[in-house]
Each structure stands twice: as C-alpha cells, then as structure tokens.
Computed example of a mutant assay.
Amino acid sequence: MNGKKALKIAGSILLGVLFLWLAFREVELSEVVESARGMSWFWILPFAVVTLGAHYIRALRWEMLFTNKEKVPTKTTLFTGVMFGYLVNIPLPRVGEVARPVYVAKQVDESSSKIIGTIVLERIVDVIGMLLLMAFVVVFLIADSQVLSRLFGIDITNSETQLDLILTLLTYGCIALVALGILYWMFKKIGEQTEGKAAEFVHKIQKIIRTFVDGVLAIRELKNWPLFIFYSILIWVFYISMTYIGFFMFDMQGEFGLGFTEATVLTVVSAVGIAIPTPGGIGTYHLFITKALFIFYAVPEATGLAYATIAHAATLLLVMIVSPTLLAIDKFVVMKKEGNTQQRTKNIQD
C-alpha cells in the first residue's frame, strides 16, 4: 500500500471517529445502553431479510446493464459481487465500488474497465433517484422545511442552493466526460506516432478508456426500461422498509407515532450521511439519524443513537457474515460449472 492510499484510509477513519464523537458527545453512554437493553430483538430477522432483499434487487438491476449476452454473470455471481463490494467498503471506503466489478470481471472473463463503467452508471442512477426522493420529501413530507437547514447546516429549501447543487453535479459530470474524451484523443495521437512496446501500452490505455465508456453507455442498449425503473424504485422501497422495521425494535412507531412517511424522511437523511466517505458509514450514519430523529420527531437522542447503533451494527454484521458465505458458494458453483464443461469437452473428444 502506497503512502497516498494509506493517507486516504487514515483520513476516512479519522473522519468516522470525528462523526462518532459528535454523535456521542452530548449523550450519556449509559442511557444509550439502557435504551438498547429494552429493544425487541425479534425485529432483527425481518430487518436482515429486507436488507438482503435490497442488495439482491440491486444485483438484478445490475444484470440488465451487461450488454454482452455471452458474458452475463449468473445472479449468484452478481449478488456475491454486490455483497463483496460492501464488505470491502467497511475498512476501505469507496474501494468496494472497484472491488465489486473487478471480482465479477474475473468470474466471467470480461473487461474490468467496462464493468466499472456500469458501476458509474449505477451511481448516476442512484444519485438521480436520491435527488428525486429528496425533492419529494422536502415538498410533501416535511411540515416545516426550515428544520432541514438546522440538520444540514445550509438552507437546502432555497431555490438558489438547489440550483447550485444541480449545476455543480452537471459541471462535474461534463468535466469528467470532456476529460475522458481528451485523454482518448491524446492517446490516439500518441499511438499513431509511437512504435513497439510504447505503442502497445498506449493502445492498451485507449482500450481501457473505450471499454469504460462502453460500460457507462450501456444504458443505450437497455431493452426493458420499465423493469429497470421498477428495480430502481424497489431498491429505495426496501431501504425505507429497513428504516421502518427499525422503529419496531424500539417501539418508536407506538411511542412517537413514527410510520412509513417518517421512515422515508430518515432514509433520505441517512443517504446523505452515508455519502460522506467514512469506513462503512460509521459515525456519519449515527450522527445524521440521531439528530434527525431528535429535530424532526422529538425522539430523545439516547434512544435515537441506540437505534442508529443497532441498525448500523446489524447491517455491517450481516455483510460480514453473508459475504464470505456467498464467496464460497460462488466459487463452488463456478468450479462445478468448469468441471461440467471440461467433462462435456472430454466426452465430445472421445
């Protein structure tokens, strides 16, 4: 591991520690423990089922972006890739976004850069979905929209702030596309003027850029748009359901009247928190959920922090248990498939 990577990892860990400190600094740890003791552990099971369901739907949607029909991974491989990515993200924030496509690429002998392109496309779709859901929450679900400003520190209900956010996203997107175009053109020109190993290297870089762009543009070859949109909506429905089921762990649906509407609001808040690069969302999720429950619905911070801690810990524990299991299963399935292929080849030769 080089110094730059080590510095990034150390920075993300420190950021996570900072947010954890911010979440716990005004709360007595004994009160959090007491709230956790009184929770209903039964609801961990449906919480886990819905969590895995969300990840499996993500794998099904990802499958639709594979345009080379001869190299479409199995659903088991795709689901394993999704879970493996989340596993890597726990110690190494954002690295899982690369580990996931690289794993799947090796399983189907496909270009890693092309599959990474599909992940970029996925993230673009997710950001659009989050922005649409956020707009819905701000317009229809928040009675006093100014409380969002207290939570995020900026007035996101202001039209100028919203316009700035959209323009910033569009600007970065355009810069990325232009940069890729310039890089491809530069390597093309260099390739025309070089020979030997240097030319081979340049052509290899060109191919990587081209296959990456092909992955991003896989959306053009999407055949079933209604199903793709349905999966995208269903992922968010599952995420909201995870939050909603968590209320029953601490009887917040009864004591504070929290329902699916409130779960939708909290899901948007948590999505913003998790977007901050800390290991596995540690610290940011705890702080944002605790403050949102307190500011929006007057849930005591000790209860809110206990809820955030248990929900987050259950999610991480599920990833750490299921991911290695799926990796073993997928490896067994692939080995069995290769064995069957070799046996058929041998029978034909005989």
Score class of each variant (00 low, 15 high):
K207G: 13
I175K: 09
Q193L: 09
G191Q: 05
Q193N: 13
I209N: 04
D164P: 00
R210Q: 11
L177Q: 07
T194M: 10
G181A: 11
L170C: 11
L227V: 07
G191T: 05
A218H: 02
K197A: 14
E160V: 14
L183Q: 08
G215W: 04
L165K: 03
V216L: 11
L169T: 03
K189Q: 13
V213K: 00
L217F: 11
E192M: 11
L170S: 12
L170P: 10
Y172V: 14
G181H: 04
T171Y: 15
K188F: 14
T171K: 15
V178W: 08
N224D: 11
F230L: 14
V178D: 08
K204L: 09
F230M: 07
G215F: 05
K223S: 07
G215A: 06
E192W: 07
T168S: 14
G191F: 05
A199F: 04
W185L: 15
I208W: 10
D164I: 13
T171C: 13
I229M: 04
L177S: 09
I166S: 06
L163Q: 11
I205P: 02
E195Y: 09
K204Y: 14
Q193F: 05
I219C: 00
T194V: 10
F212Y: 08
I208C: 05
T168P: 02
Y184M: 10
N224V: 01
T171N: 13
Y184D: 11
